[in-house]
């Protein structure tokens, strides 16, 4: 695709240049202090706050004319939210989009990290609803900032312990807190625990944007990211053993469980629809 896809009434990438520059400055600070939540002036966008505005502002600020964008929502390229964000990005930039991870240079996602290993020339942007891992400990922003400054994360550890006491294991389904570079504890956005290890020592840059909460944070390439866990209750990912994708036959990936009410049949298929489609295309 070329520039002729771009709506001439908009500035390139919707936001004005000053706004993009300010957001890029916040991103640079976030990259310089891995895991630290950098406040930024979250802009108004033609989508509602809480629908990916944080991720979208990052994407629009860093995207260039030569970039190829992939937008996914819970692993799917075709969900309403992903399609809306992609349309906005195309209408205001005219850039190319793709459903395949390896072709993309910027990937915006909600709730998933793609199955394919990301490269160092790719940037992964995650939409974050609640960036503050201490929000369960204190509702006050001033207190949580002080606790971060003092690396006082007892409240987060206590939540994990409470799960062990009551259920015999930690009960974080998604958004399992991680320690970044041995300093800040951060919410890795509501990705499943399955995706947490992908953050560790990754080749690509991860950027996290929370538009409603007005925070940006980052995990730079080759950074230590450790999921919090007790010595005697090690961190574990969701059990995917014995599951096979009904469409492409993949194993060892994160699955969506599907129930067919016509046949009363339960089956699994890859959560990452682009990955699944690519496998099927290769087979065919």
């Amino acid at each position: 695709m070329a520039d002729n896809n771009k709506n001439p009434h908009y500035n390139f990438a919707f936001l004005d240049e000053g706004s993009k520059r300010e957001i890029r400055r916040s991103i640079l600070k976030a990259v310089a202090i891995p895991g630290y939540q950098v406040p930024f002036g979250s802009r108004e966008l033609p989508i509602g706050r809480g629908w990916g505005t944080g991720g979208l502002q990052i994407t629009l600020s860093i995207i260039g004319k030569a970039d190829v964008l992939k937008v996914i929502d819970q692993g799917s390229d075709d969900s309403v939210n992903a399609v809306s964000i992609r349309k906005l990005a195309v209408a205001t930039t005219g850039i190319e989009t793709t459903a395949y991870t390896n072709e993309a240079t910027v990937i915006q996602s909600r709730h998933r990290i793609p199955e394919e290993k990301l490269r160092n020339d790719q940037i992964m942007v995650l939409q974050v609803p609640n960036p503050e891992p201490l929000r369960y400990v204190t509702p006050k922003e001033a207190v949580s900032r002080k606790l971060h400054a003092e690396a006082e994360y007892s409240g987060i550890w206590l939540r994990l312990y409470e799960g062990i006491v009551k259920y015999g294991h930690t009960v974080t389904g998604a958004d399992h807190p991680v320690s970044v570079s041995g300093r800040y504890v951060m919410n890795p956005s509501p990705i499943p625990r399955f995706d947490n290890p992908k953050l560790h020592n990754s080749d690509c840059l991860y950027l996290f944007g929370a538009g409603r909460e007005k925070k940006i944070y980052a995990v730079p390439p080759h950074t230590d990211v450790v999921s919090l866990a007790y010595d005697d209750y090690p961190f574990s990912i969701e059990n995917v053993k014995g599951r096979v994708c009904k469409l492409c036959g993949a194993t060892g990936v994160f699955f969506d469980e599907i129930f067919d009410s016509d046949t009363n049949e339960h089956f699994f298929q890859c959560s990452d629809s682009g990955f699944c489609e690519k496998r099927r295309r290769e087979v065919n």
């Binding site: 409470e162 006491v165 005697d232």
Partner: peptide
């Protein structure tokens, strides 16, 4: 006390704050 956490977690809170990271020992 944290009224919405178990009694065990209430006691463990102090142990966690003191740096203990073994759930069995804390229990």
């Amino acid at each position: 006390l944290r009224m919405n956490f178990s009694n065990s977690a209430n006691v463990a809170e102090k142990l966690i704050a003191a740096g203990i990271r073994n759930a069995g020992n804390m229990t």
